[in-house]
Amino acid sequence: MTTVLIADDQPMQRFGFRMLLESQDDMQVVGEAANGAEAVRMVEQHRPDVVLMDIRMPGLDGIEATRRIVAAGDRTRVLIVTTFDLDAYAYDGLRAGASGFLVKDAQPEELLAGIRAVASGDAVVAPSLTRRLLDAYVHHLPEAARADQAVVEDGRLAALTEREREILTVIGQGWTNTEIAERLHLAESTVKTHVSRILAKTGARDRVQAVILAYDTQLVTPS
């Protein structure tokens, strides 16, 4: 059973999410929060597997709420539900530790699949879509800011082998495991092993965070 907390300031949105989730035999809604502060408190109380997190909420917004939930170090993972025209917000949410994001007008089956993926430890956002989002946002960062980030984050790459650094680079470029296996002439099981080691060595929570790391350290630059 996957437990879910819904955090959204719109009652009708929360109601819609609840109705959908409660129609599933493998999901249970453990609570609803109308703002970020409530979400943080309710996560401490219920320790859900997944939080469906809105970004724009009164008081404590979804970005800061995500940051606090992730910083607590519990098993709860955050799935941000937003719109793609808010690229900067989505990027900030991922950097805060969210495991991915979806659009609010996503099909019901997409939302359900996203929740299950996040609960199992995967990222929700497709690598190619993640790259387009980060390209759109990072392209507008001042060069000095990018350089500063690279200096701060570069130490996280020190433990990687040459092959792992290569694979992290192409993950940042939006390659799937299948594409990596085909283009680098590796078994897909070997690629999965490399990806797992990259996440462990860099402290990235999932593939989305690995993409962000690739950008921060300038292994990948905006197109």
Score class of each variant (00 low, 15 high):
residue 45 Q to Y: 02
residue 105 D to Y: 07
residue 20 L to F: 07
residue 94 L to M: 12
residue 171 I to G: 02
residue 93 G to M: 07
residue 103 V to L: 11
residue 97 G to Y: 00
residue 126 A to Q: 06
residue 200 A to R: 15
residue 211 V to H: 05
residue 103 V to I: 14
residue 169 T to W: 04
residue 155 G to R: 04
residue 110 E to K: 03
residue 69 I to F: 12
residue 177 N to C: 14
residue 150 A to C: 02
residue 94 L to D: 00
residue 52 L to S: 07
residue 22 E to S: 11
residue 187 A to Y: 12
residue 9 D to Q: 01
residue 69 I to A: 10
residue 102 L to Q: 03
residue 114 G to E: 01
residue 49 D to R: 04
residue 26 D to I: 08
residue 178 T to C: 05
residue 187 A to L: 13
residue 42 M to Q: 15
residue 18 R to L: 03
residue 13 Q to S: 15
residue 23 S to D: 11
residue 207 R to D: 03
residue 163 R to A: 15
residue 10 Q to G: 10
residue 11 P to C: 09
residue 204 A to L: 03
residue 111 L to A: 03
residue 151 V to E: 13
residue 38 E to D: 04
residue 206 D to L: 12
residue 47 R to V: 13
residue 93 G to L: 10
residue 200 A to V: 12
residue 42 M to Y: 12
residue 104 K to E: 04
residue 107 Q to T: 05
residue 41 R to I: 03
residue 164 E to T: 14
residue 16 G to R: 13
residue 37 A to D: 08
residue 19 M to A: 12
residue 36 G to V: 03
residue 164 E to L: 15
residue 139 H to N: 10
residue 96 A to C: 04
residue 36 G to C: 05
residue 216 D to W: 06
residue 144 A to F: 14
residue 62 G to D: 10
residue 128 S to A: 14
residue 105 D to H: 08
residue 139 H to Q: 13
residue 124 V to P: 00
residue 150 A to W: 04
residue 42 M to E: 12
residue 102 L to G: 09
residue 78 V to C: 08
residue 130 T to A: 14
residue 201 K to S: 09
residue 195 V to R: 07
residue 143 E to F: 10
